[in-house]
Nucleic acid binder design. Structure first.
Length: 571
DNA sequence: GCCGTTTTCGGCCCGACTGTTTTCAGTCG
C-alpha cells in the first residue's frame, strides 16, 4: 500500500498536469508541482496532520492544505475530480508521447475527440490531423514515431546499463574535448535513467558532434545543433551531448546535473541576489560574467558550499547548504569491507579464492563470505559443506595478512520470521545476513511481524535487500517500515543497501526514513561474481541519496568497531 | 498558489531546438 504522502503528492501532481492541459495559470501549476514534491519528501505522515500541521510543509499554504484535508477526509480532492470530469485522465497520458505536450493534447481532444493513445493512432491513420492548426506533416510523423517508442521501450533503464553506455561515450569522445563527463540523473545516481546526459567543453563543437552521431550504437539523430545533439541508441536510452565553451564548464556542469527542481531553487537564489544563473555562467544584472569555471565557485557565490550531486533533488539540500549543515556523505573510498557475498559453493560463479583475491585488490580491510543457508533448498547447503568452507577460509586467511576474511551466511527469513539453523550452529559464524526470498505477498501486518522477529534474532546482524524488490520486475514487499526500522534500531540490526543495479535496496527514500530512527546500514555488493564487486558505486550512490554519512554505515568502520557492533547484537 | 532582510502585492529560472511560423509557440530538460 502506498504511503499517504505519496498518494496525496500524486493527486496534487495530477491537479498540476490537468491544469496545464486545460490552460491554467502557469505559476499556479508550478506552485502545485513544487508542493507535490514537498509532500512526497515530507517526513511526517500527512494523514495524521490537521490544517495547521499541513501548512508547516514547505510550499504548502492555506489553499493546498485545505485540499490535503479534503484528501484526508474523503481519500480524494474535489478539484481533481472536477477536472477529471472535464478532461479524461487518458488525455493526460497522451502527453507521455514525446513531442506531444499539454497544449497539443488538449487540441486533439477538443477538436477530434481523441482521448487515448489508440484513438490518436486511429485518427492519424484516417488522416484526421490534416489541416489542424499547429500540426504539419512533420508533427504527424513525430507523433506516430513517439507512439511506437512509447510502446516498445519501458522508457527508463537501470543505472548499470546507463553507466556502461555513458562510460563508453565519454571514453570515445575524450580525445576531442578539453573536458568531458556524464551529468544528469546518472551523476545524481538515480536508480533508473531516462536520458543519458554527456557534457563536453570545447571551443570547436563540430568534430565532437560529428564523432558523436557516428558512434556505432547510434540508431537515430533526434536533434542536431552546435550546442546540443540528441540521439537514440539501440542500447536503450536516448543520449544528449551538450558542448559548452571551456570557460562555462562549472556553470554548465551544475546546470546539466540538475535536478530541474534543484536548478529552479539555485536560480531563484541568484535572482534574489540580483544575479542571473544559466548554463553559461553566473552573471550580474548588466550581463557581466562573475564565475563559472567550477561548480564550487558557482555555489560559493550563491552563499553555499558545493552540494554533492546525489542530494540535488530539492529535498532539503538547499536549506541545509545555506545553514552550512550538509551531511559529510559516505563515499566509495570510505568502504572498508563487504558483508554480503557469495561463492560457487552456492549460486556464485567464482571460487572462494577468486572472490577473496578481488576483495584484496579492492583494498578492503575485511570481507565476509555469506553463502546461502539450507532453507533455500535449491542450493543444497549442508552443515558439513558450511564447516568445510570455514576450514578453507581459515587456511586462506594465512595468505592475506591485511584482509580479515569473515565467515558468515545469508540466512533465509521464513514466513514466520524464523531463520535457518539453531542458535548453537549460528553462533559459529562471525556474522549473518538474513533476507526474504519467498512469500512476497504476505499482508502488511504479517510481513512487519516477520521482519521484527528476524531483527530480534541475536544471530541476525544485517537484513539483506529488505524490500526484496526487483526494479521493473517485482514490487517491494508491503511492511510497516517505521515499525521495522524501530525494531532494527532497538536490536542493533543493520539494514542493507544492496548494490545490485536492479535491487538498490533499501531504496533512498526508505534509507532516509530509517535514518530518522537511528538505524545503521551496511552497503553490500551481494556479489555473485568477481565483476559484481564493482557495483559498489551504485550502492554508495543510493546511500548518498539517503543522506548517509560514514558513521551511519557499519562497513566503513575499522574492524574493531565493527566487531563491537556485531558482539552487541541484542535479541 | 506561494511567499517576503527591499514586497501582504507582484513577482515567480532559463535556454535550445523544432516545426510551422512570416515573428513565434510548443516542447523539453
Amino acid at each position: 500500500m502506498a504511503r499517504a504522502n505519496d498518494e496525496a503528492a500524486a493527486l496534487i501532481q495530477e491537479l498540476a498536469d490537468l491544469l496545464s492541459i486545460t490552460g491554467g495559470d502557469a505559476f499556479k501549476i508550478r506552485a502545485y508541482e513544487k508542493a507535490a514534491r514537498a509532500i512526497a519528501g515530507y517526513p511526517e505522515d500527512v494523514s495524521g496532520l490537521n490544517l495547521t500541521g499541513l501548512k508547516k510543509i514547505p510550499a504548502v499554504g492555506e489553499a493546498i492544505a485545505k485540499k490535503l484535508v479534503d484528501y484526508n477526509e474523503t481519500g480524494t480532492i474535489r478539484q481533481v475530480e472536477e477536472l477529471r470530469a472535464q478532461v479524461p485522465s487518458s488525455v493526460r497520458a497522451l502527453t507521455a508521447i514525446p513531442t506531444l505536450g499539454p497544449k497539443k493534447a488538449l487540441l486533439l481532444y477538443q477538436r477530434l475527440g481523441v482521448a487515448t493513445v489508440d484513438e490518436l493512432e486511429a485518427a492519424l491513420d484516417e488522416g484526421r490531423l490534416h489541416g489542424l492548426k499547429g500540426f504539419g506533416p512533420k508533427s504527424e510523423e513525430n507523433i506516430r514515431h513517439g507512439i511506437e517508442l512509447l510502446r516498445q521501450t519501458g522508457d527508463r533503464v537501470l543505472i548499470g546499463t546507463a553507466a556502461a553506455l555513458a562510460d563508453e561515450i565519454v571514453a570515445a569522445l575524450a580525445p576531442l574535448a578539453e573536458r568531458i563527463t556524464h551529468a544528469g540523473s546518472l551523476r545524481r545516481m538515480r536508480e533508473t535513467i531516462g536520458d543519458v546526459d554527456v557534457l563536453a567543453a570545447s571551443a570547436d563543437p563540430r568534430p565532437l558532434m560529428e564523432a558523436f552521431t557516428a558512434l556505432p550504437f547510434v540508431t537515430e539523430v533526434i536533434a542536431g545543433g552546435d550546442k546540443k545533439t540528441s540521439v537514440r541508441t539501440y542500447r536503450g536510452p536516448q543520449v544528449d551531448l551538450r558542448v559548452v565553451p571551456p570557460e562555462s564548464w562549472g556553470a554548465a556542469l551544475q546546470y546539466f546535473t540538475g535536478s530541474q527542481a534543484h536548478n529552479i531553487r539555485t536560480r531563484e537564489i541568484a535572482v534574489k541576489a540580483k544575479l542571473k544563473l544559466s548554463e553559461y555562467g553566473l552573471f550580474t544584472a548588466s550581463g557581466e560574467l562573475i564565475v563559472s569555471e567550477t561548480e564550487e565557485e558557482v555555489y560559493e557565490r550563491l552563499g553555499m558550499p558545493w552540494i554533492p550531486p546525489a542530494l540535488r533533488e530539492d529535498g532539503g539540500e538547499i536549506e541545509a547548504a545555506l545553514a552550512d549543515a550538509l551531511p559529510d556523505l559516505v563515499t566509495v573510498e570510505h568502504i572498508k569491507g563487504d558483508l554480503h557475498t557469495h561463492t560457487d559453493l552456492t549460486d556464485g560463479r567464482a571460487t572462494l579464492e577468486e572472490m577473496v583475491r578481488t576483495a584484496a585488490e579492492r583494498g578492503l580491510a575485511y570481507y565476509a563470505v555469506t553463502d546461502h543457508a539450507p532453507d533455500l533448498a535449491m542450493h543444497q547447503m549442508t552443515d558439513a559443506k558450511m564447516l568445510a568452507q570455514r576450514e578453507r577460509i581459515r587456511a586462506l586467511q594465512k595468505e592475506y595478512p591485511d584482509l580479515a576474511i569473515l565467515h558468515g551466511s545469508e540466512l533465509n527469513i521464513g514466513p514466520d520470521g524464523s531463520v535457518d539453523w539453531d542458535a548453537d550452529f549460528l553462533s559459529g559464524f562471525d556474522m549473518c545476513v538474513a533476507s526474504v526470498h519467498s512469500h512476497f505477498n504476505q499482508d502488511q501486518a504479517e510481513m512487519t511481524r516477520r521482519f521484527i522477529t528476524a531483527c530480534e534474532n541475536p544471530h541476525v546482524h544485517v537484513i539483506g535487500h529488505p524490500t526484496a524488490r526487483l526494479i521493473g520486475r517485482r514490487a517491494p514487499v508491503d511492511a510497516d517500515w517505521d515499525e521495522v526500522f524501530r525494531a532494527a534500531a532497538r536490536t542493533g540490526t543493520a539494514m542493507e543497501v544492496n548494490c545490485f543495479p536492479d535491487r538498490l535496496d533499501l531504496p533512498a527514500d526508505l534509507i532516509r526514513r530509517a535514518l530518522r530512527f537511528g538505524v545503521k546500514f551496511s552497503i553490500d555488493t551481494d556479489a555473485h561474481s568477481v565483476a559484481d564487486q564493482r557495483n559498489i558505486r551504485f550502492g554508495v550512490g543510493t546511500a548518498q541519496r539517503g543522506w548517509l554519512t560514514p558513521d551511519d554505515v557499519i562497513n566503513t568502520w575499522p574492524l574493531p568497531r565493527l566487531r563491537e557492533f556485531l558482539a552487541a547484537k541484542k535479541g
